[in-house]
Design a protein around this nucleic acid. Sequence first.
DNA 1: GCTGACAGTCGAAGCGCTTCGACTGCCTGG
DNA 2: CCAGGCAGTCGAAGCGCTTCGACTGTCAGC
Lengths: 337, 337
Amino acid sequence: MVVTLADVAARAGVSASTVSYVISRKRPISPETRERVLRAVAELGYHPNAGARALASQRSNTIALMVPLRSDMYVPVLMEIAMSVATAARAAGQDVLLLTGDEGIQGLRRVVASGLADAVILMDVELDDERIPVLRELAIPAVLIGLPAETEGLTCVDLDFTAAGSVCADHLADLGHRYVALLGADRTVYRRRTGFAARTLDGFTRRALERGVRTVHRSCDGGFSATAATVDEVLEAWPSLSAFVVQNEAVVGPLLHLLAQHRRAVPEDVSVVAICPDQIAVQPQPRITSVPIPAEEMGRRAVRLAMAQLAGKPTSGSTLIRPKLVVRGSSAARARS
Amino acid sequence: MVVTLADVAARAGVSASTVSYVISRKRPISPETRERVLRAVAELGYHPNAGARALASQRSNTIALMVPLRSDMYVPVLMEIAMSVATAARAAGQDVLLLTGDEGIQGLRRVVASGLADAVILMDVELDDERIPVLRELAIPAVLIGLPAETEGLTCVDLDFTAAGSVCADHLADLGHRYVALLGADRTVYRRRTGFAARTLDGFTRRALERGVRTVHRSCDGGFSATAATVDEVLEAWPSLSAFVVQNEAVVGPLLHLLAQHRRAVPEDVSVVAICPDQIAVQPQPRITSVPIPAEEMGRRAVRLAMAQLAGKPTSGSTLIRPKLVVRGSSAARARS
DNA sequence: GCTGACAGTCGAAGCGCTTCGACTGCCTGG
DNA sequence: CCAGGCAGTCGAAGCGCTTCGACTGTCAGC
C-alpha cells in the first residue's frame, strides 16, 4: 500500500504528531529529530494524503481555475494564462482544479461547499458577470481576470487597456500622425459586454484629443472580407489617414494584406500599431509595433493575490498592469507630403 | 459552518449511514426514506466534503490532466482537448486536476501518491516519453493522447494519422492528380519525436504508390518565408505538380498566398488538402478541403477510457480515430492539359 | 411451520492527517 | 531557590465520510 504518516513515524522512531510538526513547521522540533524524520520521508517516498490533510486542516491547498468554454479572448492567450496560473500555483504549493465556464454558478458553489478548493480564479469576466454575486455570497478568496463593471470588494487583475489606448495614441502622435483609425474588437465582444474594448477606445480617444490627433473608430469583425469592408470604407472616407491601431488579433493579418493591395507601404505610407499577443505581432513582415497582452504576468499575479487572500491579507481593488509598447517595424514617422 | 452528512441525517430523521447509502446507492433504501433524505439534502444545500469522501473511500473522483507547456500541437487544439476532457469528466462525476508538463515525472508521482487523482490523462505524448515507465510502475489508470513508440499495456487515443494520409492520397487520386506534394510538420516536431508526422507520411506515401500517384515530401517550417522557400523549390522542380497535402497549420495561409503570387488558382490549377483543425480550414478563401483534428472527440474518448479503467475494465490498446475528409472548395479534378 | 434470503436500517470502526493540551526538562529572572 | 517560560515531544480527539457487520421484519419455498 501507500506510505502513511505512521510509517514514517515508526521508521524515524517518533510519534505521528512529531512527523506532522516537522513537515508543517508549526512547532519547534530539534534538529536531530527533524533530520531523522526527513530522512525517513525521503527513504520511504512519503507523500501526505491530500484528502486526509484537507479533512483535518480544512484546507485543500487547491485553487479552482474557471476557464470559459467560449470566449472573447484569443484562445492561445487564454491557454497561456491558464498555464501560468498552474505554474505559479504549484510554485506556491497549491494544486489547480480545472473548472469549465459551463459549470457556471453551480460549479462555484459545489467546489466551495465540498471543500475542493480554497480559492477561485475566474477568467474572462464579463462586465456584469453572474458569478460575482455568488462570489460575494460565498465569501471565498477569489481573483477575477478581467474587469467587471462593479469591482467593490473584489480583487481583479487585468491589463490597463485605458492606458494601452493612450500609449498607442501617444506613440502615433509622437510620430507626427494626425489622422488615426482604431479598429476595435468585433461586435460579439461588445455584445458580450466585456469591458476591455470600451476601455481601450476611451483611453485612445482621450489622449488623441489631447494631442490634437483626429480619430475614427470602427468595430471590426475578424477575417478577410469583414476587414476589407471596414478598411476600404475608412480609407475612402479619410484620405489623409496615416495610421491604424488594431485591437483584434484576427484583423492584423488581413489589414496588412489589404494595405498592400491598396499600395500603401507599411510603415512608409501607413503605420500600424496593435494591442495583441506578441505571437501575432511578430508573425507578419514587417513585425508589428504592439502593446502585448501580458498573459503570463496576469496568471502569476492572480495566483499571488489569491495566496495573499488565503493568508488573510486584504487585497481588494484592481491590479491594472501597465501596458508596455514594443516598437517594431510597422510604425514610423508620418511622411511629409 | 458547512452542512455535513450528520446535519442531513438529523433533518431527515435517519442515521448518517442511511444518508450515505441514499447518495451512493450501494444498498437498498425504501422510497419513502430516500425521498425524505433527498429533500433534506436539497433544503440544506448539502455537498459532500471531498476530502472526507476521498479519505474514507480511497477514491478522489478526480482525473489529473497533464498539459504540456510547450507543444508540437497547435495551441487551440490543445485547449479544445483540455476543455473537452474537463467537460466529459464532469459529466462522469469527476473533477479535473490541471498538471503542467513541467511538473513531469515528479508531478505524476506526487499526484498519485497523495491520492489527489484516481486516473491520469497525458497530452502530447512523445514517441519515447519519459513518463511512460513511471505510469507502468505506478500502475494507475492512465490514458495517453498521442501514440508512443511502444504501446504495450497502455491505453492511447489519437487520430489515425496513417489513415488520414491515405485518405488524402485517395481523394487526390480520385480527382486525377498524378503529382502531389506533402508539406509536413516543421523540423522541431520531428526532432521532438512525436509520431504523427511520420505516420501521416507513411499512410500517404503507401496509398499514393498504390494509386500510381507520384509524391514529394518536404518538412516545412511555419511562417511565410520558410514556406516560400519550400514551395518555390517544389514548384520549380516539379512543374507538373497539381496538388498539395499540408499538415502544418502555420503553412496553410502562406501556401495559399504563395500560390496566388505564382498565379496558380486554387482549386483550378492546384488542389490543396490539409490535415488541420477546422478553424484553420474554414478561414481562407476558398475554404480548405481537410481532415480535421477531432479534438473534442479525443478528449471525450480519453475520459471514457479512463472511466472504464477505473471501473476495472481492461482497455489497453490504441483507439485510433478514423479520419473524416471534409471536401471544401480547395480541391478539384485536375485540369486536363 | 421453519429456513433462508433479502430489503431496509443502524452503530461503530476506521481512512490519514492536524492540532490541542499535557508533560518533561532545562534555563532564566528575581 | 523557586516560579514561570520555552523547547521538544507525545497521546488523543476529532475532521466528515464510507462501509462492514448486525439487527429486524417479510416473504417465498419446501
